[in-house]
Design a protein around this nucleic acid. Structure first.
Lengths: 334, 334
DNA sequence: TGCGTAATGCTCATATGGAGTATAAGACTA
DNA sequence: TAGTCTTATACTCCATATGAGCATTACGCA
């Protein structure tokens, strides 16, 4: 599913080409979305004036891609990677130079620490700098109403056929929760793709006009539409955020972002930072405790501002105790 | 997470190597897991005497990997691909020849038709031929009790330390549902990896001994352990099955495998074929209907063997009507 | 001592999912 | 033609999960 929209739009640039003469090869890059959470802010590691994700060539020294990325990140940043997961591999022709094709393999990595160390200059940045419309913790950001909604409406209205206008607007309404629909925090990538298609994202301009409809839309990517990145790094970041937001709901990966011991509120704030929305405190505690994901350390934290909170630690045994997955079909357990 | 187990085992073979001299490149392959379902059997397209998944070099003629795979499959097999999804990219060093590194990008594709046509000889085969322990539709296969259980127990007992023995056995118990645990049909890959590690899979022998513990285990991969495949194609197939079994629970992809019109029982049998277990008929219908995934055609099918069944068709509108995802966190809807 | 801020305990209504009962409508057969 | 087999289809029941709110407790601080 991913990339479908972009594919369609770029089909104009699709000319038949001969396969590569064998003997010549393709270059492979690793691109990392490294995430940490500090003081209720979800951070992503960036380089190049905060306009790029860390990346590097895939070296054959490694026995697998996964270990290649891990070694490379830990050498460059001195960060211990708690959790690593492959995101997506792409090789769109419009990326990079024309002479050699580059395959990019992107990874999501979670870490506890976030001191900027290592061989190159890297900066931790809140990912909401790149996606200001994604943070709904204090309500929907005003810019959705004032900036995004009118432009997407104009973009939809720019179509000739009524049914197509309707489809476009419905897509916008679903992804952004217009017309009284609920906000769905997992649709990070879909929202980015939609804005890209509508010409509201700075990166879209660099790749030339997408379609005639584009020029009809409000075709300026204002600074309020988030910080731009090189190539399609922002799309990769969107993929990582979407994956992480989905993952925390059925797999205990949040704990890879937490210190050794923590209060339940700290844990909650971490989840909220990632999800970009608030959760019901009592129900959150109930969920965590009934799943026996944590155990008390016996100590309490005084610096809560109110009543002292018990400190907990993650029960790593859960990984060996049970397989953690979800279910939705009416499958008989007999 | 994926591949972690294998990674650990092969760390003995991990020698530091210089990065490739720039200028030379890497070869990229596409590998396809193509699935169809006919008469309650989940089929996968195979080549080379049913011992390989269809694969081919990634050609630069395509604007993206996705379209590259689609074009290539449709040209080779003349099958219309309804749904395509990237599975995983890997580049383990022990695959293929040593002279050139190959990156393999695997895809899952769903199709309705299954006539063997196209430029090369391909065969549709039930995927349970490769994973006989995965079909629980008529109860757990006897070979789990008679073959797998005793060998995994021996494999666990072969360890010196009691705690390690316990860990191994617990892993086996979780993935295969021993000791009164429930069977989890999504753990296809975990089960394959476990059997591989325990030396019960023919493919493991080709890659040399994994660890000293291996020789202590019942180290013969009997024919009852399923048909072997070249390289790690069987692992890729396991990945595809696992992904599909998980996906059908929250995304309406089953319909890509169904004919235009179908009865609810046909749909149920298709789901059961994929999941490898039975579902409660009445609840299945309730679920399908309350989600408004299908609409009546007005006609009925007589060849049910009993009371004629209404024919339904998939409501493609659901894709534009709503975003289809799941939720598990206590997220406020206010 | 009173207030602000959290932690923590408990209740309640509703939604969801697993499982069973009952009835309907065809084909087939004695 | 009645009886039987098979499948479709309509409901009911119950346990549990989930969303939401109320009440109480416990600390720092003015």
């Amino acid at each position: 599913m991913m990339g479908t929209i972009r594919d369609i739009n770029m089909s104009a640039a699709n000319a038949p080409t001969a396969p590569l003469p064998s003997g010549q090869g393709i270059a492979a890059d690793l691109i990392a979305v490294l995430v940490a959470v500090t003081e209720s802010e979800p951070l992503v590691l960036t380089i190049q004036d905060e306009r790029a994700l860390p990346s590097g060539p895939f070296e054959l020294a490694h026995r697998s891609l996964q270990s290649g990325l891990r070694a490379w990140v830990e050498r460059q940043t001195r960060l211990p990677l708690g959790y690593v997961e492959q995101l997506y591999t792409f090789a769109d022709r419009d990326r990079g130079g024309a002479e050699q094709q580059v395959i990019s393999i992107s990874y999501l990595g979670l870490t506890r620490e976030q001191r900027a160390a290592g061989e190159f200059v890297a900066t931790w940045r809140s990912w909401y700098v790149y996606f200001p419309w994604e943070d709904h913790r204090v309500g929907a950001p005003a810019m959705i109403e004032t900036v995004i909604l009118p432009r997407l409406r104009a973009w939809a209205e720019a179509l000739p056929a009524s049914s197509l206008r309707h489809d476009r607007w419905q897509r916008a309404a679903i992804t952004f929760g217009f017309d009284g629909r609920a906000w769905n925090e997992e649709l990070v990538l879909q929202r980015y793709e939609l804005l890209y298609e509508a010409g509201l994202i700075a990166e879209a301009e660099r790749n030339g006009p997408l379609s005639p409809a584009r020029s009809l839309a409000a075709n300026d990517s204002s600074p309020s539409m988030g910080r731009a990145m090189i190539l399609d790094h922002r799309r990769i970041l969107a993929t990582g955020i979407a994956r992480l937001r989905a993952k925390i709901k059925y797999h205990p990966v949040v704990f890879e972002l937490m210190p050794e011991t923590f209060t339940l509120l700290q844990l909650q704030r971490c989840v909220e930072a990632l999800a970009g929305r608030l959760v019901h405190k009592q129900n959150f505690r109930r969920l965590i405790e009934q799943q026996e994901l944590v155990e008390e350390t016996g100590e309490t934290s005084q610096d809560t501002g109110g009543r002292p909170a018990k400190l907990f630690r993650f029960r790593r045994e859960v990984f060996t105790e049970r397989a953690i997955v979800g279910t939705k079909l009416p499958i008989s357990r007999a």
